[in-house]
Design a protein around this nucleic acid. Structure first.
Lengths: 373, 373
DNA sequence: ATAGGCGATGTTCACGTGAACATGGTGTGG
DNA sequence: CCACACCATGTTCACGTGAACATCGCCTAT
């Protein structure tokens, strides 16, 4: 929901038709090519210009602009008319300087190339926008300490009120990083629950569901293609797999380990395909499951006839794998939403609940799993 | 490359160990839980505080902070020491207000959920960071005019020096949007080359390569699973497909149309699988190709034995499809890089080349294509 | 009728920074 | 030995905004 104080102006500005100050961005526009280039980098229209034209004080303009209630309707109209005529836009830098807050959230991450990250970021951006906050992306080139440190150093100079960190916080452990005073932190995909607010999918429960599903179908035990060491998500999924097998009194096979990529899943799958006794595989994500499927196909082992495969994430393509993949759905949108909610609460100094917020996961059964022959 | 004027401070601040002002973010830290919450939202350390401690004027501090050359070494040392002691960070809002620029680029897009978008954004973020610019994400909820307009309205209030628009600009055509004066625009994935600077992959050439590859293998003609109408990328790929077939004097079959999703590719694939004469399919992206593969498998038509399939994008998983997908690689990183480069040139009022910059695409031959029987 | 209050608007000022201009000291060339 | 140049540093100020406080006029309660 938009902060109501801003909505007044916004709604008006939206009706903006062709103001002098701006550059038109319309197809029917017949102005010269690349019209935006003609715009001089002149000083923008300030509150004072509007005040002069409207014949009021600049403070009254400010009141209109912030949606302050104590402005009489006729005055407000006059000011809004002046704003439109001049093409006035509030200067965010000045506003931020005055208010001491930036209405901006920084998002620190390694990559947008994983489904989980990009969808989480998308949800974060959507919800932040709805709350009137902008999102600044702070990419970390690689998961090395140097680069992480660099990102946080950059962060220090950035204009953000809070940060959402989407990565393994233990990468920061060896480093000492200072955050600007007052900057709040929420962490995703990590077990730093004792030090930071953490939001994450319920990895453990999801992985447990996957394994139990396979056992319930009648498989003796379940092999596991794990994610890389050092990833909490991978560790938690592997733990759940192991625990679930142990609780059911089953043998725990050796772990195959990948790096989340389909290619690494394929390599693991090739190794598994050679074990005749392997009838059920739980891959720690859908990409690796895809690689596993390919490996079994190439080795003539039918899925789900000979071997059952379960993934994790439920990426949009999973339903079109061959065969359609049984997998654990993560609600990334909800994770993003809760991150923003929690961070904003911290920024506003409202009641702060430390610890970890878990978003439920859910097994989606498709056609890659069946009873063993 | 970082603007060298900033690098001086940056390098120093990085050595920051445990400054008073900030909140420690270290594992070994034994301070109370969620330490960042203890930080009062007090006014930060300003240039004046540093000046006082160092016994110099605030202007000298500013000179050190901006890397001005006219500061004697001993003074510089003293100032840097004071900065570290106080945990000083430049206030970006004040800096932006003073300089009239924000060192920020806005990125307008609908979704991060497509491989192309998320990888392009990632590249944009990386290169912008390297140039000392931050990235602000401006999500557009849906490709409706209302939402697009809303995003641009929000943009008006945002603190950005330039904008990269990743979407079909024709969505803006019916609307009249005003951009803040001086804000520059670069567009991806659109044919607005006459109005804006445009950067895009060479869709036409890539699709041509795909079709020629299939014809060269000996296929009579090639079916096409196109992207949604209204997408320039989809249109351009379809055009290239048609043109290439016509130039080779081949029959042009009816187009199957999808919406980029694997599911839609599957539905198109089911229809194609029923046509016995269909021996070669060019899908407009890899997701739809995945769906096509599944459809052919389910219909007992071997790939590449009975039917050859080519995709577009070369998503990381394509090499692990079953069979590994022959596809057209897009260099999203390069697209992102060029966007930033071009936009920064415009922002800096350097030589401006209007029109479209095309990034080459390249066919990657894997195992989903073969000679027809 | 009048005091008191309150609502609408105006005036002042500080937020933190860095450009422009000012100052003062040192070195060098005539 | 003086004049001038040049360099390190200081002083002043404006950038655009909105909070705090001030003012003014009208309405209401007594």
């Amino acid at each position: 929901m938009l902060t109501s104080r801003r909505r007044g102006v916004k709604t008006r500005l939206r009706q903006n038709v062709q103001s002098e100050g701006g550059t038109a961005l319309a197809a029917r526009d017949t102005s010269p090519r690349t019209p935006e280039l003609s715009g001089r980098k002149k000083r923008g229209v300030s509150i004072a210009d509007v005040a002069r034209l409207a014949g009021v004080s600049s403070q009254t303009v400010s009141r209109v602009s912030t949606g302050h209630p104590r402005v009489i309707a006729s005055t407000r109209e006059r000011v809004l008319a002046a704003m439109e005529e001049l093409g006035y836009r509030p200067n965010n830098a000045a506003r931020a300087l005055r208010l001491g807050e930036f209405r901006t959230i920084g998002v620190v991450l390694f990559t947008l190339s994983t489904t989980g990250n990009s969808r989480t970021v998308e949800a974060i951006a959507d919800h932040a926008a709805a709350e009137g906050y902008a999102i600044t992306l702070i990419p970390v080139a690689s998961p090395t300490q140097d680069d992480v440190l660099g990102a946080f150093t950059r962060l220090e100079e950035l204009a953000v009120d809070g940060v959402i960190v989407i990565m393994e916080v233990h990468l920061l452990d060896a480093a000492t990083v200072t955050l600007p005073p007052g900057v709040q932190v929420v962490v995703v995909d990590s077990d730093a629950g004792d030090r930071y607010a953490v939001v994450d999918s319920d990895q453990f429960d999801g992985a447990g569901q996957a394994v139990r599903h396979l056992l319930d179908l009648g498989h003796r035990t379940v092999w596991h293609v794990a994610g890389p060491t050092g990833s909490f998500a991978a560790e938690r999924r592997a733990n759940a797999w192991r625990t679930t097998l142990q609780e059911a009194g089953r043998r725990v096979p050796a772990v195959e380990r990948g790096d989340w990529s389909a290619e690494s899943g394929y390599l693991a799958g090739v190794r598994l395909a050679e074990r005749a006794r392997c009838t059920a595989v739980f891959a720690a994500n859908d990409q690796m499951a895809l690689g596993v499927l390919r490996a079994f196909h190439e080795h003539g082992r039918a899925v789900p006839g000979d071997v059952s495969v379960v993934g994790f994430d439920d990426i949009p393509d999973a339903g079109c794998f061959y065969p359609p993949l049984t997998t654990v759905r993560q609600d990334f949108a909800e994770v993003g939403r809760r991150c923003v909610e929690r961070l904003l609460r911290q920024i506003r100094r409202e009641a702060v609940e430390p610890g970890m917020a878990l978003v439920p996961t859910r097994l989606v059964v498709r056609h890659s799993t069946a009873r063993p022959r």
